[in-house]
């Protein structure tokens, strides 16, 4: 395999190669710049930033802004820091990701291995969910949450994200299971396994790569969501993104840029972590089924 890739790579001279790497390094630096600004400024005292040295390395190194952003910064009216909202986000993200992934897997299983009449139309309709803009569902969703008594609660947000995410997770799992050998399902049927036994014992253990794709996708989207959080969350269920906005947009007092930078990094850390831990499965899972071997 690796031999084949080497053979198909374009052969270039040393000068061209140097040029290519130069351009690549420049692009990499350019893309790293925002992260650099954020990290550098989150470990400086405020005077160093307001003094005009945005791009400079810190003269005095301090973790004070991080501590403040986490536990004592003014969010709205309460000086709680971001920590309670961080837990709000976790309480929302974990069940929402888990439920939407399991539902997507079940949908994919049914749509590929328990075919029924008009199943492609059903799949098409589910797929349609991927293309509906967030804004369209805001008002009907608010009404529905109110009717169900879930308005302003974490479970309300979980429901919204599950409903919105099932379209994507179904798409992933359906395409993955479409190339899963049906003979295995038939063998299990003859062996006497039922619908859920086949799902748990045969299908799910072989779904690692696509489950990782689904989890990363759902985790990133739900964690980063602002609109639903801002629209449907109550005082006790606001997620991290909304709190970060409240921290940064505060219209009174001094703008503590170093705290804002630290808060923004804190808000982005979990998704970064998920990518680092599971990222290499991500591409593998996305490619699964498209290329043989």
């Amino acid at each position: 395999m690796s031999v084949a890739t080497q053979d198909t790579a374009i052969r270039t001279g040393r000068v061209t190669r140097t040029l290519i790497y130069l351009v690549l390094v420049l692009f990499a630096l350019f893309y790293m710049l925002p992260l650099y600004v954020m990290v550098v400024n989150s470990v400086k005292p405020l005077e160093e930033i307001t003094g005009g040295g945005m791009m400079n390395l810190p003269v005095v190194f301090t973790l004070e802004p991080w501590a403040k952003a986490w536990s004592s910064a003014q969010i709205g009216v309460e000086p709680t820091g971001l920590s309670p909202y961080f837990w709000n986000s976790i309480k929302m993200v974990v069940p929402a990701v888990a439920i939407s992934t399991v539902l997507g897997a079940l949908n994919g299983y049914v749509l590929t291995k328990w075919r029924f009449k008009y199943d492609t139309i059903v799949f098409g309709l589910i797929l349609f969910a991927c293309f509906i803009p967030f804004q369209i569902v805001l008002i009907p969703m608010a009404k529905m949450l109110g009717l169900m008594g879930l308005a302003g609660t974490t479970w309300g947000l979980v429901l919204v994200h599950v409903v919105y995410g099932v379209g994507f997770t179904t798409l992933y799992f359906r395409n993955y299971y479409a190339v899963f050998p049906t003979e295995l399902i038939r063998a299990a049927q003859i062996d006497g396994a039922g619908f859920f036994q086949i799902f748990w014992r045969i299908l799910l253990p072989s779904s690692g790569p696509i489950a990782v794709v689904s989890i990363i996708w759902q985790f990133t989207n739900i964690w980063n969501d602002f609109l639903f959080g801002a629209s449907f969350a109550g005082a006790g269920s606001q997620p991290m993104t909304v709190a970060l906005n409240n921290l940064v947009q505060a219209s009174h007092g001094v703008k503590e840029y170093n705290v804002h930078f630290a808060g923004a990094i804190l808000a982005a850390l979990p998704t970064l972590l998920v990518y680092i831990v599971a990222g290499r499965y991500f591409v593998r899972g996305l490619m699964a089924g498209s290329v043989k071997g």
């Binding site: 050998p181 003979e183 038939r186 049927q189 003859i190 396994a193 072989s206």
Partner: peptide, 20 residues
């Protein structure tokens, strides 16, 4: 009658062994 209740066993072309 459900396949599992017919007291039959089947060997498939791809063998269909559970990979996990």
């Amino acid at each position: 009658v459900h396949p599992s209740k017919r007291n039959i066993a089947m060997v498939f072309q791809s063998y269909a062994l559970y990979p996990n």
